[in-house]
Design a protein around this nucleic acid. Structure first.
Lengths: 239, 239
DNA sequence: ATACATTCCTGATGCAAATCATGTTTTTTG
DNA sequence: CAAAAAACATGATTTGCATCAGGAATGTAT
């Protein structure tokens, strides 16, 4: 448990270069009671099973997604290749980039990593609220900005680091930002981890093994434990 | 000149995967006369020489940048490595990601590729206008969304294509989006082109040469001419 | 329990592209 | 204008990582 403290302080420091982060949204707090009701009247709550597609790239954006529970993979597709843009955890919004009215098509696919509960909110209501409520608009801008900055960090990491650096980063992010503990049950397969880090499944396995051999992490099936977060940090910044 | 037509139609089609694009901003059109005056009273126009740093990552964001003329490199720095996030051409805004008040530090450096004229607008005025004017806020959201989507395309391209695919993409983007003609004087050095495409300078030179040998482009010093845009297109989507 | 499919893992091979080394041309500067 | 510096170019070498091939372990369906 001492490690948790070290971990959180480290994750704090590497925030900007972090591949995966948890950007929560407080925009609805700025609504009036009346506006809150309006949102509630125009939303539905839907549950998705592990692996199910929530929205598909290329379809019309009729709704904005608000993740209530679960974990969602947001990715860009082209041909048979894909690129994970971000991982959305509870309190995240998905679909904001479709707010421009001349761009009302989903530019990415979102699917559930695990069983996930999502609020679907009518996008026109969001548009209306942006026009009406400055504080709400400002909060939406904040979310967009944060997502953009996080993406810059991920972008940088994927392009400038090599295998072990990328993977070290992802492990720290999963521990620090998503699961918020140094020992967690990883819901993702090695293949999904590979997709996330932009490397081959085999390389992920090999690299994970080398981390384990070097005493940086401990793996037992799906259970991951970060033993030496500072070591991972170093790897992350070197390679 | 026949080629220009082909070129523009092609650039139209590959818009989403385009590494470099020209996102212009019409947000100030939505201001009242009074608000426009407010902006004008709180802005200064500054000229930067080629190579000069306009804003430096890590410094306080007191102003938003509006490019009047020129070409600006926006990049993320970490240690001695850097990553170009986007190229900003006239009518672009830079610094919007610093709008959240809890995040008032520039997350990237901007420097002038060529002599550039920039309007510096007090960021607090922009914040005030977002709260006051819904249409303005909405236009800012539109810009942020477009930049985000463009970044996704660039992100994808840099990660999934190999050298020749990346470079083909960049050449098409420069021709189609920045210079808007199939024959242009490239202001960037091979080294800058390498930085932009995330490859080594030597590889850029070699790849450019192979494009020339294959009759796809013609290069004469700094003058680039796209001869076979459809060929470049194909390369772009294959590799 | 048996058959089948995934996921996980390991070693061998190949290749794209970075790096190194070195030379040439162009541009900048004193 | 000469000297220095930067940009451009090209060949040789190295290397990180994907790909291929095959096997063990785990999970799922029959």
């Amino acid at each position: 448990m001492q490690n948790s403290k070290v971990l959180s302080s480290i994750v704090e420091r590497i925030k900007t270069s972090c591949t995966v982060s948890n950007i929560s949204c407080s925009c609805f707090d700025h609504l009036t009671e009346e506006q809150k009701e309006l949102v509630e009247r125009n939303q539905v709550i839907v549950e998705y099973k592990k692996g199910e597609v929530i929205v598909k790239q290329g379809t019309f954006t009729s709704h904005i997604l608000y993740i209530c529970e679960g974990l969602v993979k947001v990715f860009y597709e082209e041909g048979d290749q894909s690129l994970i843009l971000r991982i959305a955890s509870p309190k995240s919004l998905i679909g904001l980039t479709s707010l421009p009215t001349n761009q009302n098509i989903f530019q990415y696919t979102a699917s559930a990593y695990v069983n996930t509960t999502v609020k679907l909110i009518d996008i026109n209501i969001i548009r209306k609220l942006i026009l009406e409520n400055g504080r709400f608009a400002s909060a939406i801008i904040d979310v967009l900005s944060e997502v953009a900055m996080q993406k810059n960090g991920r972008f940088f990491c994927l392009n400038h680091r090599q295998a072990f650096g990328k993977l070290a980063d992802i492990i720290l992010c999963l521990a620090g930002n998503i699961f918020k503990t140094d020992k967690f049950e990883l819901l993702l397969s090695r293949k999904e981890l590979a997709e996330l880090s932009g490397m081959s499944t085999e390389s992920v396995i090999r690299t994970l093994k080398s981390f384990q051999d070097d005493g940086l992490i401990r793996i037992n099936g799906k259970t991951f434990e970060v033993i030496d977060p500072e070591g991972l940090m170093k790897i992350c910044h070197l390679g």
